[in-house]
């Protein structure tokens, strides 16, 4: 696998330029790794450690602290459903169950064909438009067990 410095050297340089201290680039570089490889691979963590002058263990510690970074490949459509209080009060649980049934996977899993992965997540700050979910980071509001199929069908 070519390194990020081979694939997109300008992006790496641009990130490093942005901070007075190099280490601050860790999270942006983890995002870049996600973008380049589809997940934060061990090789990417090693490369980031080298770029930042820190250890791979340190980078793994950081990457695993933040729940958004996928340390394993995700589905083509990664669905994150808020199950926190405001969404829960207006139907997040039935929504989640519906998705689990329909996709045949549980939270934290990926469908065998790799098309979908599902994750229940904490509050997404859409409480006033609950229930809410994200598909590959795009937000959908007032999604319920009743209207979610429409959304799924629209995904290729």
């Amino acid at each position: 696998m070519p390194s990020m410095r081979e694939t997109c050297p300008e992006k790496v340089e641009d990130i490093l330029r942005r901070f007075p201290q190099r280490k601050s680039a860790s999270i942006p570089l983890l995002y870049l790794a996600w973008e380049v490889y589809g997940y934060v691979s061990p090789e990417a963590m090693e490369e980031i450690a080298e770029i930042l002058g820190t250890s791979p263990a340190d980078v793994e510690g950081i990457a695993s602290f933040y729940t958004m970074f996928p340390l394993k490949p995700l589905g083509k459509h990664h669905i994150e459903v808020c199950t926190n209080i405001s969404c829960h009060l207006v139907g997040a649980q039935p929504l989640m169950s519906h998705l689990e049934n329909r996709l045949g996977i549980k939270s934290g899993e990926r469908t065998e064909d790799g098309r979908f992965s599902l994750q229940s997540v904490e509050c997404l700050a859409a409480c006033a438009w609950a229930p809410c979910l994200h598909v590959n980071g795009k937000e959908y509001q007032k999604v319920t067990a009743e209207n979610v199929d429409e959304l799924l069908n629209s995904l290729d």
Partner: peptide, 27 residues
């Protein structure tokens, strides 16, 4: 001005957790 994106950690809303995160560490 510069935008720094967190990556899924409520604790980074706590002001010093925010700072350690912005320094590129665990929050």
């Amino acid at each position: 001005l510069e935008v720094y994106r967190g990556a899924g950690a409520y604790i980074c809303g706590e002001e010093t957790g925010l700072l350690t995160s912005l320094e590129g560490q665990k929050g």
